[in-house]
Design a protein around this nucleic acid. Sequence first.
DNA 1: ACCGCGGCCTGGCGGC
DNA 2: TGCCGCCAGGCCGCGG
Length: 270
Amino acid sequence: MPELPEVEVVRRGLEPYIVGHTFDSVEVLHPRANRGQDAPLDAILRNRLVSGIERRGKYLWCQLDGNTDREDDVLFVHLGMSGQLRIGHTDSKHVRIRAHLSDGVDLSFIDQRTFGYWLVAPLAKIDHIGQDPLSPAFDIVAAARKLRTKRTHVKTALLDQTIASGIGNIYADEALWRAKVSPLRKANKLLQREAIAIYEAAVEVMTEALAQGGTSFDALYVNVNGESGYFSRSLHAYGRADEPCDRCGTALNRVVLNARSSHFCPQCQR
DNA sequence: ACCGCGGCCTGGCGGC
DNA sequence: TGCCGCCAGGCCGCGG
């Protein structure tokens, strides 16, 4: 569900509440929310200090100090399709993990579909995840070159998190609409300048979405205080099948690529 | 080595 | 009312 802007909204929202606090206790209410963990999460996290909260693409993690023989480990939080982090008490029936931190800060992990998770593991777990397009270190020329090695549709290649991370189904469609490139083009047939234009468009659209608090269609995406973002009003392609293109008025198409809907203008996206 | 597909889940919606 | 199929913002592992 949440893509880069939504995850960044969560990261920023969480930062002032949890950085500098230590874990008092952690309850895992649904085992899938902490699948793959090698020991009880409460035992791992108790008394550890959150010294920072970071993000790459859709992966969020807390840096942990204090203790221990697990110095290299961080606490990964992945929101999957329907995950939320909420500060304070919430009584949703989909609360999967509750954490109690010092000074009375309560944190709930809510996740209807249970594709998300918390996991304490080495940062190397996400070595395969590519650079984040909103990071100053993002090498757009290199990403564009790598995109152009893929023989699949450009839409599918944009969702490949090893090339550049954080672009999901919404922002892939929006970036292609802005760059006027059809999702059906083969990535390896793109010109370098087209591939660069697509990533430039992705950076623009995600930056604008972030400024508006992210994209919310319903209560499945909200920030740490339960508030929705406003960017859904600014979408030009995603979810707009059969509606007129905001540039040329042609009815937008919907096609399915690798079981993901793609929305585009057949007239002005080439 | 690459890429596409199925699987992992729950729930809302529309059609019959 | 209920059942069924389809749809949903992600990711990983398998097999061709």
